[in-house]
Design a binder for these strands. Structure first.
Lengths: 335, 335
DNA sequence: CTGAAAGCGCTAACAA
DNA sequence: TTGTTAGCGCTTTCAG
């Protein structure tokens, strides 16, 4: 029993065939006779051989992995997208490398690094704040965006963010609200802008008032949602219903409102965005816009694999539908 | 301008040196003269050369990546551990491959696969339900467990799970509770068992009653926490304070209690485990046992890198302290 | 259907 | 300090 791991040479020797035949048997079994196939497979079993992926990759001029670039791994929002990606990449024998653009100093530089490094056969971008110029890299691998991105023409999988904002406003209006506010994500984020646009357009279409004081700035976190709740309380002229651009913010908002002794939806109605798991477990349940994150990951991975396998840098983008989920956090306005 | 990416040969030609010198310049710049260094570096810039990691890895008999094996990527609990791992692995130039043991049919087989495949220089295990025999693999790379694991002697980074259970019980007892219950994780999980043991031992030490009906089975999810709340309501003889083995369950529990029109902590006190982000945003805030997840990831990665670099399969394990975080969800018992 | 042989791009002895 | 050389382990023509 060697302690070193067996190589294809060892298998060839044991099976009494050439290394080429071993390689063939393993990659296209149909092309060798049953006799040699049996000999090779039993030699493989005997030696405990496993192909050395590094060598195989070098020879085949590929890497066997895909890099997923996201702004912040610690954000649970991405966890389900990763699960979707993994469920496609793993069976296809691609490794999934995770890289965090916020952990280093310069996110754009990191992206440029990954583009040029040739360390992956493809890239999935989940960060909508990277600058477009970086993509100029001539030898870059196929890329799929799984998020909105300013003025990019890259293949992408996106959700109907604007329509989500409109659905939220429509629901609040239907319940009788006429003073509808919004808590945004970070201002430079494209999601923020798209959802805000959907919100504003819907108000306009419904002939409802647009009050800039009712549009509060957040950053998608629970903390910023709680801060928005305090900011709203400080207003003399308050919106009765709010659309928040993420469920995390909505959660922080509701918590803070309740701690202030007020009632949701009695005093203020809340609609979130995402439908994260906790939405149905809050009291009241959080009315929100569902965005199917696992499916986003699945479709992005499928798109990318198609591009990799067809050696193309382009593919049709895809838009995934959102849906209003009615729970208890939005009700008729007070009075 | 070639469309193919430049190789070390191209750089050598442009700089008028050998490939060995190029390689040296890039890996140990100190060992070449300034003149050649300058020549090489400008040739690198001119050609846009980047080392081919696959070739480098093949030559150096390493893979440059670490596999992180976790039960379920979609579980946000792991997100912060991943962030900690990434913050150490990325600067050290190791790729972080994520693999999900629950996405395939047989988790043990997956582990065995990764152990033998030689696709990684090291492994981080976050799944405490894998069977120990699989580790028999002779040529396996260094492994660090970042979770409890039955009867394993592998190097590990763990938290004081039993003490966490004891802290929770101690706190409830201090507030005056004498009827203290517990909601467990999945029964076969070692975390479940350790926290349950800490819970039971603490009750015994304090001379408090142990009622099997007050120990409800959960599975760490919010859904199971909500179910536990309903199960508690169905009891005629109810515990006044509960320790739940995860914050997610505690969140689901509190939501369900509130939807039933009861008050936390007025009617029932709740202590969770983890200190996930939402804990401070619930109303009331969730009293819980803090477990520093980023730090777990950081230490696990550091341990693993040490082992990889010293080519050792062993290292001292580490225990990370937990801490009671007092918020509003635990108060004096009713009456 | 199978084997021989030529590298993929890089690094590390070893020599000079 | 630098160059020469020999592979790392694999796949894939190209012959046979």
């Amino acid at each position: 029993m060697d302690r070193r791991t067996a190589t294809i040479q060892d298998v060839a020797r044991v099976a009494g065939v050439s290394t080429a035949t071993v390689s063939r048997t393993l990659s296209k079994p149909a092309v060798v006779t049953k006799a040699t196939r049996d000999a090779v497979l039993s030699a493989v079993a005997e030696t405990g051989y496993r192909v050395n992926t590094t060598a195989s990759n070098l020879r085949r001029q590929r890497t066997g992995s895909v890099i997923v670039l996201l702004p912040n791994i610690a954000n649970p929002f991405f966890a389900q997208i990763l699960a979707g990606l993994s469920s496609v990449l793993t069976p296809a024998e691609y490794g999934m490398l995770i890289a965090d653009t916020q952990s280093g100093p310069d996110a754009d530089a990191r992206l440029a690094h990954y583009l040029a490094s040739g360390q992956a056969d493809g890239l999935v971008l989940l960060d909508g704040t990277l600058s477009a110029e970086v993509l100029a890299s001539p030898a870059r691998p196929p890329i799929v965006m799984a998020c909105e991105w300013m003025g990019s023409t890259l293949p992408s999988v996106r959700v109907e963010n604007a329509r989500g904002g409109a659905l939220a406003v429509g629901h609040l209006a239907e319940l009788g609200h006429r003073r509808i506010g919004h808590v945004t994500g970070p201002p430079d984020n494209v999601l923020t802008q798209t959802r805000l646009a959907g919100f504003s357009d819907a108000l306009r279409a419904l002939g409802l008032p647009q009050n800039p004081a009712w549009v509060l700035e957040g950053d998608f976190t629970m903390d910023s949602g709680a801060a928005a709740a305090r900011a709203r309380l400080a207003l003399t002229d308050r919106p009765t219903g709010l659309f928040l651009s993420s469920d995390e913010m909505a959660t922080g908002f509701i918590g803070e409102v309740q701690r202030a002794g007020l009632n949701v939806p009695g005093d203020v109605s809340v609609v979130g965005f995402d439908n994260i798991e906790i939405a149905q477990h809050l009291a009241p349940g959080l009315t929100t816009i569902r965005q199917p994150r696992t499916q986003i990951g699945v479709r992005a991975a499928e798109l990318l694999l198609t591009m990799i396998e067809s050696n193309s840098r382009d593919a049709p983008s895809e838009i995934i539908a959102v849906e209003l989920i009615r729970r208890g956090s939005a009700g008729p306005p007070p009075g």
